[in-house]
Design a protein around this nucleic acid. Structure first.
Lengths: 161, 161
DNA sequence: TTCCTTTGCTTTAAGCTTAAAGTAAAGGAA
DNA sequence: TTCCTTTACTTTAAGCTTAAAGCAAAGGAA
């Protein structure tokens, strides 16, 4: 075969000229490339993962602890996923969990002293990797991207978010 | 309840003032929000997944077919992953695979006529969802982001990519 | 030919992720 | 009290993803 006419309107990659589509494809590519690097480095240098780091980071910013559902919302992942990742951190002694005295259904998760030290260690490396990854980006571009991506996120978080 | 919200950044954690870090956090948040929406819609409306769509898209742009390793490179995923997703599409009759006559180790994967029609259908919906998702973004911002994200991707794909 | 190395792909083990179903506490209403 | 609904979380089934190990063809070298 090899021929098999396409017949359906557009011959060339559908929607190739759309600014929205090109913006999305590029955004996604950047995110994937960066995530891939960070994943590999967390694995190689610290034997941990990005999701675990994300949980530690959220808890570091909340010294009083967070409920599971707050973690889920903050990290944009499902409840079930938080359960899994928090359990791994519990097993490693980086977080602790206690029943919410005000509501027997919910737990309050927070960092242990070991977990705090661990996060500081990971965060320094993380920051270093990010700086390195973007070291060749012109300062003006970084500022533009910080600003425009901030607006974009706000819009994407909107009603149809 | 209702309290316990976490601002996803600038709470004064480590490296809070860094433009690189803020850029990265925002980029990642946008990508996650968008992916979540697309995943749900592909599932709800077409009973398929984003990775399958990505493979169809790559093959649609290569009428002569692609080798597994070319797919892997194009989609930024591992070889093993391509094996899995291509198998699912084979089972559904959307792609076909033949041994590369020039090299008995490699296969050439390409769309079937059914697969072409399927992709056109999915791509139209995909384009519609993206347009909708970004409909409130000012045109100037879209253009800026297309441009700056293009540069960013080039840099990230660089030597330490 | 026989060996060795490289290359292309598949399989496997482990971990991430989600939606949906399940469990259980909370908070009322009757 | 008993029942009902909501809320918080966990479990499960299914699928994505990777790195590493494995297999087999290709392409030489001896």
């Amino acid at each position: 075969m090899e021929k098999a006419e396409v017949s359906t309107e557009e011959e060339v990659p559908i929607g190739a000229g759309s600014a929205e589509l090109r913006m999305w494809v590029r955004l996604l590519a950047c995110a994937k490339i960066g995530e891939k690097q960070l994943r590999r480095r967390f694995e190689d240098e610290f034997d941990t993962t990005l999701p675990r780091f994300d949980v530690l980071a959220a808890l570091y910013r909340a010294p009083e602890g967070l409920r599971m559902s707050a973690l889920s919302r903050a990290l944009l992942v499902s409840n079930g996923n938080v359960t899994v990742v928090v359990r791994q951190l519990l097993e490693r002694g980086f977080v602790k969990s206690k029943i919410n005295p005000a509501d027997g259904r919910s737990a309050i998760v927070s960092l242990t002293p070991t977990g705090k030290r661990r996060f500081v260690e990971l965060a320094e490396a993380h920051h270093r990797w990010i700086s390195e990854l973007f070291s060749e980006v012109p300062v003006a571009d970084k500022d533009t991207l910080v600003s425009k991506l901030g607006n974009l996120r706000t819009i994407m978080n909107g009603p149809r978010g």
